[in-house]
């Protein structure tokens, strides 16, 4: 069976990201998954067990300062060299900022088509994408080269399929042109132990209705009790209630959790763009005409400052 390259997304704090396990799951339907780890020294060893658990038959490791100290370009070079050498059936990357950027460079290097934000990839490489604020489903194919596809987080349920991968170190010749953009510092901004927004199975978001930054503790409290991530509408972000990386919507993150809770969010089309494909949607809003109710499975009309504290108390009681 031909190899399928899965470009691993991992973080210092959380190790292998869930989207990587999803990619491995999808890859198994296309061929034999090989995980490509690109990062600092020792990265592959640290991630190997988890990658094997989800079916990586092989791990390619591109490690060290040459790869990790620069922005994206060396990683794309490493993957391109590997593609030329092993001639995989497909390359899967995460539809995250970095995954998309590597994919873009890779497509240019190989003069190859690129499909972004897929939620499904069929055996013949046809990718399913949900576009235009969740309103349209598109099936597309790469018509030149092999399928290079980025996978949107939370698209499939990761399934374990234990394998014992051998690790192969890559010797990558990083060109000078790949070293033009240097990473001088990586700064983690605290968000406690909450799951990553795009990967969380529960997201609790607050909007302008939350009123100010301090009140966002209400949103955080509910998220923590449910084991979810915190999100925010753009109005909440623009008003300084919550940091931008937690914005859900057209110009923020696309989330597709099992449960999405919208607190004090009107449900503008650009917000819906980022959460419309959530499995179950719950909303609290004092305006009975708020558009968020048009897509909520369960909506409560009323003041969130009364409803949310009561709800959190009730959840605590049931624990």
């Amino acid at each position: 069976m031909a190899e399928v390259l899965v470009v691993v997304e991992a973080s210092q704090a959380a190790g292998v990201k869930k989207v990587t396990l999803e990619m491995l799951t999808i890859a198994r339907g296309l061929g034999s998954p090989s995980a490509v780890v690109l990062g600092g020294a020792g990265a592959a060893e640290q991630l190997a067990a988890k990658l094997g658990e989800y079916g990586a038959e092989k791990i390619y490791a591109g490690e060290g300062e040459e790869i990790d100290g620069y922005l994206v370009a060396p990683k794309a070079t490493a993957v391109a060299e590997l593609v030329k050498r092993v001639q995989p059936a497909a390359v899967l990357l995460a539809a995250t900022q970095e995954g998309k950027e590597i994919a873009g460079r890779l497509a240019v290097k190989l003069d190859n088509g690129l499909l972004t934000d897929a939620v499904e990839v069929a055996e013949d490489g046809t990718a399913t994408q949900v576009v235009f604020a969740g309103s349209t489903i598109v099936k597309s194919k790469v018509t030149r080269g092999l399928p290079i596809v980025t996978i949107r987080p939370n698209s499939v349920t990761p399934a374990a399929a234990p394998a014992t991968p051998a690790v192969e170190q890559l010797t990558v010749t990083v060109a000078d042109a790949d070293k033009l953009a240097k990473v001088v510092e990586r700064v983690a901004e605290t968000k406690g132990s909450r799951p990553e927004l795009t990967e969380a199975s529960i997201v609790v978001s607050g909007g302008r209705g939350v009123g100010n930054a301090d009140n966002f503790t209400l949103v955080e409290e509910m998220a923590d009790l449910l084991g979810g991530a915190v999100g925010a509408s753009r109005a909440a972000v623009d008003s300084g209630y919550y940091p931008h990386q937690f914005q859900v919507g057209q110009t923020g993150k696309t989330v597709s959790p099992q449960l999405y809770v919208a607190l004090g969010i009107s449900g503008a089309i650009q917000h819906r763009a980022g959460m419309q494909t959530s499995k179950t949607i719950v909303a609290v809003n004092k305006d009975p005409e708020a558009p968020i109710f048009e897509l909520a499975d369960y909506g409560v009309v009323g003041d969130l400052f009364k409803i949310v504290p009561q709800a959190t108390d009730e959840i605590r009681k049931r624990k």
């Binding site: 900022q97 510092e185 990553e196 927004l197 795009t198 990386q245």
Partner: peptide, 8 residues
């Protein structure tokens, strides 16, 4: 970035 930011 998802974790915070990078200085580049």
């Amino acid at each position: 970035t998802d974790e915070g930011y990078e200085v580049v």
